[in-house]
Amino acid sequence: METMKIGEIELVWLNGGDTHMDGGAMFGVVPKPLWSKKYPVNDRNQIELRCDPILIRWNGLHMLVDSGIGSGKLTDKQKRNYGVTEETKVEESLATLGLQPTDINKVLMTHLHFDHASGLTKWEGDKLVSVFKNAEIITSAIEWDEMRQPNIRSKNTYWKENWEPVSDQVVTFEQSLDVTDGIQMHHTGGHSNGHSILTLTSNGETAIHLADIMPTHAHRNPLWVLAYDDYPMTSIPAKQKWQAFAEEKDAWYLFYHDAIYRAVKWDQEGHLTHKVKRAKGV
């Protein structure tokens, strides 16, 4: 498991499972000859996308950013369609750190699509139960409303199996939320109407997690947005706004989905200056 620090904030990437999604869908209207230079693609036109929660240890708290794709939650057809080659092993990752799911205080949900929220619940016998029973599950109010009442498009990714068992743990916010000292969540919309990002600041260092409005380092161009985005013309100015913030702060970018890098930093000319690579097989 890869680790890094932002000031005194400790980050650890857990094993949340692996998917392989259509590269064209992940880069929208960008031609394949362009995006395929930036991110590897297989002979089925799929790109690898990790679903690895980030454990944040800070201020006496154990917090997760998103929850992975879960284990035993997907049908064989869904695994095939989403190119799932590995399911969540978050509990095993936590155990190697001497932690249990009950030690998690907060789960910071950037949004509630199945590849981020399926790890919130698991099967115990014939009943779905909460994985992180002692945690507040934090998401934007807009996202929580849509999760429970999805529209004709979003019902394919907002599943009752992922929210009903944890409904009494959910805490919502409107525009921004101070989760704890130095860690904020900000509603952006774009990828979903309720999509949110995170900023982390400690001892003069800053990191930003743009979640699925910038799911990999290859999506740095503000115009390179996903066909999966419900509101792409909201994603673009949101990326521009927060990339300007990141440039001003000389911030690290953190990733949940990127199969190559856990975190990167660019200079003002767009050159990659710092990186934390994912160890293969993790």
Score class of each variant (00 low, 15 high):
Leu11Cys: 08
Val131Gly: 01
Glu124Thr: 00
Lys5Glu: 15
Met63Leu: 07
Val264Ile: 14
Leu11Gly: 08
Ser71Glu: 15
Asp103Asn: 11
Ser93His: 10
Arg278Phe: 04
Ile208Cys: 00
Ser192Met: 11
Glu143Met: 01
Ile137Lys: 07
Glu2Ser: 01
Glu86Gln: 11
Leu34Ser: 07
Gly17Pro: 15
Asn105Asp: 09
Val129Met: 12
Leu210Tyr: 10
Val225Lys: 13
Ser67His: 06
His116Pro: 05
Gly125Phe: 02
Asp168Ala: 02
Ile137Thr: 10
Glu174Thr: 03
Pro237Tyr: 13
Glu269His: 15
Met147Ile: 01
His111Arg: 04
Tyr39Glu: 09
Ser176Asn: 07
Val30Leu: 13
Leu198Cys: 08
Ala207Met: 05
Ile197Asp: 09
Tyr256Asp: 00
Glu8Ala: 07
Pro222Ile: 09
Gly60Thr: 03
His195Gln: 04
Val131Cys: 04
Asp258Gln: 06
Trp35His: 06
Val84Met: 11
Asp168Glu: 14
Pro40Trp: 13
Ser192Val: 08
Gly72Thr: 02
Phe114Gly: 08
Ala238Ser: 06
Pro53Asn: 07
Val29Trp: 03
Lys275Tyr: 03
His271Tyr: 08
Thr19Trp: 13
Ile47Tyr: 12
Lys89Met: 00
Ala279Cys: 04
Asp168Ser: 12
Trp144Tyr: 09
Thr216Pro: 15
Glu247Ser: 15
Gly98Val: 14
Asp66Lys: 10
Ala25Thr: 15
Asn105Met: 08
Trp35Phe: 00
Tyr253Gly: 00
Leu223Lys: 14
Asn59Asp: 13
Asn193Lys: 15
Leu198Met: 13
Asp229Ile: 01
Ser130Met: 10
Ile56Asp: 03
Ser118Pro: 10
Leu64His: 11
Asn42Ala: 03
Lys73Ile: 03
Pro53Gln: 03
Gln243Tyr: 02
Asp52Leu: 06
Ala211Gln: 14
Glu205Lys: 07
Thr273Ser: 11
Leu94Met: 10
Arg148Met: 01
Pro40Ser: 12
Gly68His: 03
Ala218Gly: 12
Asp18Asn: 04
Lys155Ala: 09
Val264Trp: 14
His195Trp: 04
Ala244His: 15
Gln240Val: 06
Lys32Ile: 04
Gln46Ile: 04
Ile69Phe: 02
Ser71Lys: 13
Lys155His: 13
Asp115Thr: 05
Val129Trp: 15
Val107Lys: 02
Lys249Met: 10
Lys122Gly: 04
Asn134Asp: 06
Ser167Cys: 11
Leu210Cys: 03
Pro40His: 12
Ile152Pro: 11
Thr206Asn: 12
Ala263Gln: 02
Gln240Lys: 14
Asp18Arg: 06
Pro33His: 02
Leu112Tyr: 09
Asn162Lys: 05
Ser154Phe: 09
Glu86Ile: 05
Ile213Met: 05
Lys37Leu: 14
His62Asn: 07
Pro33Glu: 11
Asp229Gly: 09
Gln100Pro: 01
Tyr228Phe: 00
Tyr158Gly: 01
His20Val: 02
Glu8Gln: 14
Thr96Leu: 02
His113Leu: 11
Asn193Phe: 14
Gly60Val: 04
Phe114Arg: 06
Thr110Arg: 07
Met147Arg: 10
Val107Gly: 01
Ile236Tyr: 08
Leu108Ser: 04
Gly68Gln: 07
Val90Ser: 10
Ile236Asn: 13
Lys73Glu: 07
Arg278Cys: 06
